[in-house]
Nucleic acid binder design. Structure first.
Lengths: 345, 345
DNA sequence: CTGAAAGCGCTTACAG
DNA sequence: CTGAAAGCGCTTACAG
């Protein structure tokens, strides 16, 4: 259908090598007379020539195409604005450099290296990379530049660079905030199918550590795991738990808990303080607005994309692992422990 | 780095044609002795062979790669769960068929056809396709199977298939609902930089038509265009507008208006009824929960992906344009016009 | 300043 | 049942 270099060469009466040089070679190397060059360009335009990138890539051994791997891809819709921010961040960098972004299906540790090493990708950004020997080995087999986004530090595969937020520090901010408000009975809320996620693991362990540092023990009853819809909130509350505050692993889950509370007539924050994690614009729209740890996901995504591009161009990374600091956005879902709540009916 | 067919051929003592046949040919055409075949497979495995997809694609003229075009890509983070649902829908179909999804940078009408026709894509899903002669021509030039998602019916490029939701019908549901509640002073709220978007155009024209059909005129003052943050709400309300209900073009913008209202002490829905559009799970988390038109975006996305796959396989589409019906999810942000509000201070 | 030729890794008629 | 050869469209030494 499309015209090829050969077509142009014939139409312009030159060799295909000459056409290629004129159309794509770096300025300095073009040693073709002005007139010839102009003529070739005209013919190419007239024939509506579009270079076949596949052929070029095959020849050059580069694709200008980056892969994006999600574990738990199915639940992209779960993290309100989190993924959207991440996308924006990654694509803003990649597109500026004329790269494309390809979403990959979930990678099978056994056969997945073929998806990565088949010549279609210059590199890969791997979200929530989960420790797995097979995967590590696969990645090494694929010999593909890789940036792991939000991965446990101990799980970063060799020859990859890790970019993450400070989950431990974030948890500490939460515990600080809540204890300063007088709360000592704090529960951590996880989400079903997310317990194995690097982020939730990091936040939970940070929570336990920070509590312990303040002389507060964390028991089994202080760690809750609820379904996506957080419907367990109602029965949990009915049991009159001692907790006066909840640290919920992410923004999306926190918003659903807020909803359940509202429906059940539980007053947030008077009866129960709630803190979440991520703090995108979404946290402003909940009722009450959600106090949450602010993770700079957009900047992290931009950074990850830049690091990957450097990796691809052969640079040795300055650091094997980069951790972004987090802050706490205090909004309306937390308040000082009131007397009324202490005498919980 | 990776082993090639030639390497295997040499190691196995056969021709590369034979290797290719054993490894990839359709079952029927393999005419190689069992033992030889087995031996070749062993060698391939031992050498960690991964076929180079680029080379195969170049030869076969197919890529198993679909492009996704957003106009206004930058604002993907704006539509709360809308894009996430869409992604899930598209990828669930594509991945099952071993296709990949590549996000494309915004397409330049003048040069963009090169992005599409460069041999990397088997087809394209184009979101919010905007009428544009250059683009139409470009698409024809590229000669690429195309599905336009949520495009005005009149703008669907020739040789593409349109998949959209019934924006007009949705607007009618809104007007029905509000007028049944006694509202006659209804304003439509658009969003800056979205006025030219097919969806907002469709919803606005549906609003005007439905109002007119009920003998209600729509004046200039009844059509508002607010910034992303909807901060204009406060000054608008301060002017004591006659309106008792707002029809806001989408869910995200509606949620921000709700937030402004809450901050400004305007009671929704007692003082003002608010209706949005999209109605993903996000509409449940706002305060109050948002009454909104439900657009089955996930199913639409799945449908679009399936149609595209059919187009690619050469099937003639049953229809040039498919419109999905919408429904209205009545939640807490609308209520019957109360006496108190009529006597608006 | 320009062209003939080889090659990226694969697949597919074609011949034997 | 198997292999030699051509070719997908491009680029890059190399020769002239």
């Amino acid at each position: 259908m499309g015209a090829t270099i050969k077509d142009i060469a014939k139409a312009a009466g030159v060799s295909s090598a000459t056409v290629s040089k004129v159309l794509h070679d770096s300025g300095a190397n073009i040693r073709v007379s002005k007139e010839r060059a102009e003529h070739i360009r005209e013919v190419a335009h007239k024939l509506n020539y579009v270079p076949n990138v596949l052929a070029r890539n095959l020849r050059k051994g580069a694709t200008r195409n980056i892969g994006l791997v999600f574990e738990n891809f199915g639940s992209i819709a779960a993290g309100p604005l989190y993924y959207a921010e991440m996308f924006d961040g990654i694509t803003s960098v990649l597109f500026a450099e004329h790269y494309r972004l390809t979403i990959l299906p979930e990678i099978d540790p056994d056969t997945g290296h073929k998806e990565l090493a088949n010549g279609q990708l210059d590199g890969v950004i791997w979200c929530k990379f989960v420790e797995n020997q097979a995967t590590n080995q696969m990645l090494r087999k694929a010999a593909l530049p890789c940036v792991a986004l939000n991965t446990l530090e101990t799980n970063v595969p060799p020859n990859a660079v890790s970019v993450m937020c400070d989950n431990l520090g974030g948890a500490e901010l939460v515990v600080d905030h809540l204890t300063q408000l007088g709360h000592t009975q704090i529960a951590f809320v996880n989400e079903i199918r997310e317990e194995e996620t690097p982020d939730s693991i990091g936040r939970l362990s940070g929570f336990i550590r920070s509590m312990n540092e303040r002389g507060l023990a964390v028991h089994q009853d202080d760690i809750l795991t609820w379904s996506f819809e957080a419907t367990e909130f109602v029965s949990w509350w009915a049991k009159k738990p001692p907790h006066t505050a909840l640290f919920i692993w992410n923004e999306g889950q926190a918003s659903r808990v807020l909803r359940r509370a509202l429906d059940a007539g539980v007053e947030i924050p008077r009866e129960l303080s709630v803190v979440g994690f991520d703090s995108t614009a979404f946290s402003e729209t909940t009722h009450p607005p959600l106090t949450a740890v602010n993770q700079p996901i957009r900047e992290m995504a931009r950074y990850a994309a830049n690091v990957l591009l450097n990796l691809i161009s052969g640079q040795v990374p300055e650091s094997h692992s980069v951790t972004f600091p987090v802050t706490l956005d205090v909004r309306g879902s937390t308040q000082a422990l009131t007397q009324s709540r202490v005498s919980n009916p």
